[in-house]
């Protein structure tokens, strides 16, 4: 990037990193606002969390401000669709596991999760879901004794 306009002066991954750290640090300070700070000799429960969140915010701001002056760097191509599908698959599993049991939750996880790949084919999904569900039930529930009902009833 040879054109010297201000647009081309930002390191976007660093802006993201700095923003993230500052945000999470602030969230931590807010969540720990009622904790006792104490003194170094008698540290309260909030001493280290608050100090560390402060450091996190400071580092975040430093990274963020420095990124404004750094040479241009893009975040790179992103495709968040697979991530969103994976989230839906895992969330379903988390919600279904305790009440509806292994088979229902695993079938949901595998079928929805398989859609995250652009090249997925229904036939393959059906076969792999069947095999993995059977394998998982045998190994984890019967073999290793994971405490999860197998079927909803």
């Amino acid at each position: 990037m040879m054109t010297g306009s201000s647009k081309n002066h930002r390191d976007y991954p660093d802006l993201l990193a700095g923003g993230l750290m500052t945000g999470l640090g602030a969230l931590g300070l807010w969540a720990g606002r009622d904790l006792a700070f104490g003194t170094p000799a008698m540290m309260g429960s909030g001493f280290l969390p608050n100090v560390l969140c402060g450091v996190l915010i400071a580092i975040g701001l430093f990274v963020f401000l420095k990124a404004m002056t750094k040479s241009y760097e893009p975040i790179g191509d992103s495709n968040i669709k697979p991530l969103l599908i994976l989230i839906a698959a895992i969330a379903g599993f988390a919600f279904l596991a305790e009440s509806f049991g292994f088979v229902v939750s695993t079938v949901w996880l595998l079928v929805i999760g398989s859609l995250a790949d652009q090249e997925s084919r229904w036939k393959e999904i059906a076969v792999s879901t069947l095999l993995l569900t059977a394998f998982g039930a045998l190994v984890f529930i019967y073999g290793l004794g994971v405490q999860m009902p197998v079927l909803p009833f």
């Binding site: 895992i90 988390a94 695993t106 595998l110 995250a116 790949d117 792999s128 993995l132």
Partner: peptide, 12 residues
Amino acid sequence: RLLYPAILLFCC
């Protein structure tokens, strides 16, 4: 595409 569903199941 055949591997990652198994990994996902192990994770969960």
